[in-house]
Amino acid sequence: MTEEIIISGFGGQGVLSMGKILAYSALMEGKEVSWMPAYGPEQRGGTANVTVIVSDERISSPIVSTYDTAIILNQPSLEKFEGSIKPGGTLIYDDYGISVPPTRKDINIYQISAMDAAAEMGNTKGFNMIILGGLLKVRPIVTLENVIKGLHKTLPERHHHLIPANEEALRKGMDIICIAQEAK
């Protein structure tokens, strides 16, 4: 199994942290992982993306041309990465940031209203965990249990009391993700 994932959105949405938690969770399962950020003078509102690769085998390039799964959190990211998803691959997007929806017919498209759900839960910072939950529902790359372990690893100890809220957000994402289109 090798899953090549791009997560892309605005800086401040938790794109890089989501990738990091996913990578650590996969590490907990004994998988090979790589996490390659598009780094730069990043700031809230700028663009941010990260390539996460999870595999049973040694990973060659941390930089790839096409992706099995794309998580798209704003319009510029959709325009940039929709064309790079492998045929039969997966696109997950939050409709909150998307004004022109995806047009590919040969990929599975899922929609998740994470921004709205986060606001309803009164936990806007849980946005990225809702998305991650959604991802794990449709692409069970790692178990929820190992994500919780990953959170313990990535979060500094003073934030460990927030882990139950994150777990709630992950479960919420698993509940609310829905299919918008099956690949033809």
Partner: peptide
């Protein structure tokens, strides 16, 4: 280089 410096791996 910037790739090997920034990438996170096992």
């Amino acid at each position: 280089d910037g790739v090997v410096g920034q990438v996170m791996e096992k």
